[in-house]
Each structure stands twice: as C-alpha cells, then as structure tokens.
C-alpha cells in the first residue's frame, strides 16, 4: 500500500473516536457508583459523621484526598493530549502534598511528641491499605477506559496519574468511614495506599494506554 493509497483510505474513514474528557465524564460517575456500592457492602459511615465534618482534621483528610483526585484528573487528561502543556496541571498536583504537609506541621505543633507514634499507627492501618485500593479499583478501570481514547507520550506515566486520580477519589470515599483522623496517619497510610494504586495504574497503563 503506497502512502497515497493509505491517505485515500483514511480520508474515507469518517469514524472518529471520542475525546477522553467526554468519555471520562461518562465513565467516572459509573465507576464511582460501583465504589459507593462496595462501600455500602463492606463499610459504614462513621458515627456522627455530620458533626465530624466540622472537625478540621477530618476536613483536611477528605480535602487532601479529593484535591489529589481532582488535580490528577486534570493532569491525566493533559498527558493524553499531544502537544498540551502539562506544567499548569503538574503545579496543581503540588496542592495536596502542601496541604497535607501543613496539616502534619500543625498536628506536631499542637500535640505532644509522646502521642505522635500512637496517632501515626492509628486504629486500623490495615483497613486503610485494603479499602482505599479496593474503592479505587472501579475508578481506575473507568479512568483507564476513558484515557484509552487519548494519545499519551508515556503510557505508564499516564496510567500512574490515572492511579493517583483513582486513589484520591477512593480515599475521599474511605475517609467517610475511617476513624483515624491524625494527619500523621493520613501521611503514612493514605500515602501507602495511594502508592499501591499508582503502581498498579502504571503497570496497567503501560499495556492498555499504548497507541
């Protein structure tokens, strides 16, 4: 097939894909629904949640997680668009760690050093490491399916960012159950869970986001 012939064929193929943004807007809510069902089946909202939502440490935990999901969502879409400048989105990714660092600093200022270790270990780190990846999984699937329409220069990297997005939103959901509120706990275990989902996203992305 000569190049001229290929071009003739391509010009007659009028079917085009859908923008990753469009597809993500459809699939992410579907993934979220599955995550919410998993949450309803395996976990429960923490007691007195509405009162707890006024608690700064609870707000920080949810806020940092949600900010991570949102920033990674913006970055993932940028990475899937050839020629788009990812730098503003990368800057946005700095927001969650800076927020968390401020929270950790605040916690260390207002609580005695003798309590730090107890707060860090918390009540249930294993549940955190189990349920955040579990709740993130449907979101990761949704994100990867949507991003398959994209054209990332580095599929593993785009997959990792999809993992960050899924972990961020999954952790926001888990935070509605999680009884451990110390920023030290969030720093350790939420980050650990995020790392697991991010690694999974990178491994999967390398395979499914290549184009």
């Amino acid at each position: 097939m000569k190049t001229d012939e290929l071009i003739r064929g391509l010009a007659r193929d009028e079917r085009a894909g859908r923008a990753p943004e469009t597809l993500l807007a459809l699939l992410l809510p579907a993934g979220l629904l599955v995550s919410v069902l998993l949450f309803a089946g395996a976990l429960h909202l923490r007691p007195e949640l509405s009162r707890m939502l006024a608690e700064p440490r609870v707000l920080l935990k949810i806020g940092v997680s949600f900010a991570l999901g949102a920033a990674a969502c913006v970055l993932a879409l940028r990475l899937c668009r050839p020629g788009a400048d990812p730098r503003p989105a990368v800057a946005l990714m700095l927001v969650p760690p800076v927020l968390l660092a401020a929270g950790v600093a605040g916690e260390m200022l207002v609580t005695p050093a003798s309590g730090w270790m107890t707060a860090l270990v918390g009540r249930n780190p294993r549940a955190c490491l189990t349920f955040i990846p579990l709740l993130a999984a449907p979101l990761l699937v949704a994100a990867l399916l949507a991003l398959r329409q994209g054209a990332p220069a580095n599929p593993a990297r785009a997959g990792a960012v999809a993992g960050l997005m899924a972990a961020g939103f999954g952790a926001s959901l888990y935070a509605l159950h999680c009884p451990d509120d110390s920023p030290l706990f969030v720093l350790t275990w939420y980050s650990g869970a995020t790392l697991i989902v991010t690694g999974l996203g990178a491994v999967l992305g390398r395979r499914v986001l290549a184009w």
């Binding site: 190049t3 290929l6 071009i7 391509l10 193929d13 085009a16 894909g17 859908r18 923008a19 990753p20 899937c80 668009r81 050839p82 020629g83 329409q149 994209g150 054209a151 220069a153 184009w211």
Partner: peptide, 24 residues
C-alpha cells in the same frame, strides 16, 4: 498518518494543529 487519523479527536479545534501533529 495512521496515528494522526485514529487520534484526531485528541486535537482541540481551537488550538493550532502543528504542535499536536509534531508531538504525534
């Protein structure tokens, strides 16, 4: 050319085509 064709929906019509094309 195949990639340009199959991924053309990732170009934003309000942006210039050349940077997108050279990146692909």
């Amino acid at each position: 050319l195949l990639a340009v064709h199959l991924k053309r929906h990732t170009w934003r019509p309000d942006s210039p085509l050349a940077p997108w094309l050279w990146t692909v």
